[in-house]
Every structure is written in structure tokens, then in C-alpha cells.
Design a protein around this nucleic acid. Structure first.
Lengths: 200, 200
DNA sequence: GATTTTTATGAATCGATATTCATTTTTGGT
DNA sequence: ACCAAAAATGAATATCGATTCATAAAAATC
């Protein structure tokens, strides 16, 4: 017998593909079933309903991402570097798992009564990684204390998320991931304004 | 007889409400018809199909926003101030037209074959306002020329958009719009890092 | 290898709803 | 007031697709 988890994850992987291609509402259960090579009914042995596939997919996958990025950050002390690592890791998701990136984006935007109820604690955990970095930087005296970490974490996440959207939609990305991560970090660390002229 | 445009816009306004509440796919034509106080069939005298309502709504409304914000920016020369104006205007939309803000966000994220085809030129026109400001700042020598306006425009839009999302979903906003606009601008203009200590 | 338990199947059900169109109402001109 | 054209109606249509469940296959137990 195939291990239970194998079928669960086969269906999840198939759902990622299908949701990314068609969007949640246009994706049919039978599409996911076909992609996963199981019967339609089998899906209901592992998930309660269509929405449950999306939610459970989101929590599983973002959980993995949180673990990965926290592990990477552990080794680093400098908050600037940490921000770099976070940004690069976030954007690299696109290269490695384009479909997943697309679905995660989508999930956050499902605007309806259901989603407004659902408190997305995993997502909050993810962006709180950013505010923790900012706090640390402020405590170390490197970051400006006038910046609200609660706002900045959203701004930084939003910026990265929007860069993702660009990649997902555009066929020819104008910039590389490296370039983009560097640019975004530079922007957030140093700002748009020119540094005051060096005192000669 | 009621002017044609009145009915068209009655339906559009109703659609904004219903889409915001239920999301595009869960919104029924009959919901929109009821909200607009017209018959279901009447909607098809003004729009080709359900998707057409969304697209046309988006283009009309974002068109108005572009006009408004361009008018506001005309009077101002300083790029920093311009950025402030843009940010504040973007966030104020939320206060004035929460439903619309929600629908505009949603529209951008409908991830499916259809949306990937649809080249959203109005949206591009909107965010190009930001890159124009950045260009101007760079030409004037105020902004760092190492920043790519093409990336920064996305980052700034993404940050503002994410702040919107927070408001739309959260019942108790922690920050005021003024505060948020100031914080976001400060972040983008000056960056996270502390300014170098003044040379005494 | 027979029996029980677990897992999988996919055709049938059942509700939903986008769209159509025959009919009615309103309008504007005479 | 009457007529033709335009606008509006809303019940009927026609399709779609999530979910169920009686049945079958596979695995575990004896």
C-alpha cells in the first residue's frame, strides 16, 4: 500500500499546478484528480472540500518556507544581511517553485466572507520574521527607531510580493532575482534619497 | 427615460459592492441585479458577461484615479512631496471607497489564463506615475541614481497595496492613514538605516 | 487462502447560476 | 391618444461541477 502521506502530497502537488494555471475557482476537482492520477472521490478521503485543499496547501507549504528561512537567518547576525537573506530567499521561491508562488499570492487575495474570517496565523508568522529583524536592528542602534516595525514589515513584504507578481505575469523578466533582491534591499536600507555629500 | 450612463453606472456601483463582499466568483449576477434594482437581463444590455463587468469597472475607476492624482501632482515640484502626495492619495482611497479598494486589489490577483492574457494598461499607467517621480528626482540630483525606477515603482506600489490589504482585512486598524503614509514615505525616502552621525 | 478492514473508484446526484429571449413596459414623436 | 422603437423584464434554459455513495480493489490479519 502507498503511504497515506504520499497520496496526500500527490494531491497537494497536483492542486498547486492546477490552481496556478486556472485559479482556484476555475480549477475543477476533476482537473486535480486527473493531474494527481487518482479518482475524483479519492480527494475527499484526504480533504473535506475544495477550499480545504487550498488552506491546507497554504499552511503546509508556508510552514516549510518559514523553517527554511529561519534556519538560514540563525547563522547571521547583521540585520542588513538578514534582510538580504530574507529577500533573496523569498524571491528564489519563484525560480524554484513558480506555481507555488503564484498560488500563495492568490490565496492572500481571495476576497470573500470566508477569507475574512480565516485568521491566517502562518502568514503572520512569516512576516513577523521581518519585524523581528527590524527590531533587532533598532536595538543594535543600526536602524532608525522612528520606523515602525509593524508598518515596515508589511511594506517590505508587499514590495517583495509585488516583485513576484511581476515575474509570474511577465514572460520576459527584465531583471534577475539577484539584481532585484539587491535593489529592493538597497532601497529599503538606504532609501531613495542621495546620501548627504561626504564631508571633505 | 433614465440616461443610459445612469444605469451603466448604477450597475457598476452595485457590482463594486457585491464583488467586495463576496469576491468575484461567489458574486451572483442576480445579487448585482438586486443591488442595482434592475432585472438580471438588464445587466446584459450594458455588459457582455460577468467578466466584462469586472474589467470595465476596473478601467473606469482606475482611469478616474489616475486623473485625480495627476492633477494633484501637477502643482508640486519636489519629488519627495510628490511621493507623499501619491502615497496619501492611494491610501485615502480606502477611507473614501473601501469597497472599490478591495475590488481593485482582487482584480490584480485573479490568477488564471484569462488574466494572464489581459494586458492591464491602465494599471501600468498608474504605477508609471511613480517611476516618473523617481526619474525626476534622479534628474534633479535628489535621488540616488543607482536605484532602478522600474523596480522601485513596483516596490512602492506593492508596499502601499499591502498596507491597503491590512486595512481591508483588519477590523481595527492600528495606524491612521496619515501615519501610514508618513511612515511608508519616510521608509522609502530615507531607508531603515540610521543617518550617519552628524559631523560635529 | 479466506476473511476482515482499509482504501480507492467513478458514475450519478443535486444544486447552482450565467445567459437567453419571448414578452412587457417605457419613451418620444406625431 | 396612438404608434413604432428602445429599453427592461424575469422565467426558462442549459450547462457545469462539487460532492456522495454503492461498489470494487488492495492490504492486513488470521
Amino acid at each position: 500500500m502507498m503511504r497515506v502521506s504520499d497520496k496526500h502530497s500527490k494531491i497537494t502537488q497536483a492542486a498547486v499546478k492546477v490552481f496556478a494555471k486556472k485559479g482556484f475557482f476555475n480549477a475543477r476537482i476533476s482537473d486535480i484528480a486527473k493531474e494527481a492520477k487518482v479518482a475524483d472521490g479519492t480527494i475527499y478521503l484526504y480533504f473535506n472540500n475544495k477550499y480545504d485543499i487550498l488552506i491546507s496547501l497554504f499552511e503546509d507549504e508556508i510552514g516549510k518556507i518559514i523553517l527554511q528561512v529561519k534556519l538560514l537567518l540563525e547563522k547571521e547576525d547583521d540585520p542588513c544581511q538578514k534582510l538580504h537573506i530574507f529577500a533573496k530567499h523569498h524571491l528564489l521561491l519563484l525560480e524554484e517553485k513558480k506555481d507555488l508562488a503564484e498560488v500563495l499570492q492568490m490565496e492572500l487575495r481571495q476576497s470573500n466572507e470566508f477569507m475574512k474570517e480565516y485568521r491566517n496565523t502562518k502568514f503572520i508568522e512569516y512576516i513577523d520574521i521581518i519585524s523581528a529583524i527590524i527590531h533587532q536592528g533598532q536595538d543594535m542602534g543600526i536602524f532608525n527607531k522612528a520606523i515602525s516595525p509593524g508598518i515596515a514589515k508589511r511594506a517590505i513584504f508587499g514590495a517583495l510580493d509585488e516583485m513576484s507578481r511581476l515575474w509570474v505575469l511577465a514572460d520576459d523578466p527584465h531583471y534577475t532575482i539577484e539584481e532585484t533582491a539587491d535593489q529592493v534591499c538597497n532601497l529599503f536600507l538606504n532609501g531613495l534619497k542621495n546620501p548627504p555629500a561626504p564631508t571633505t
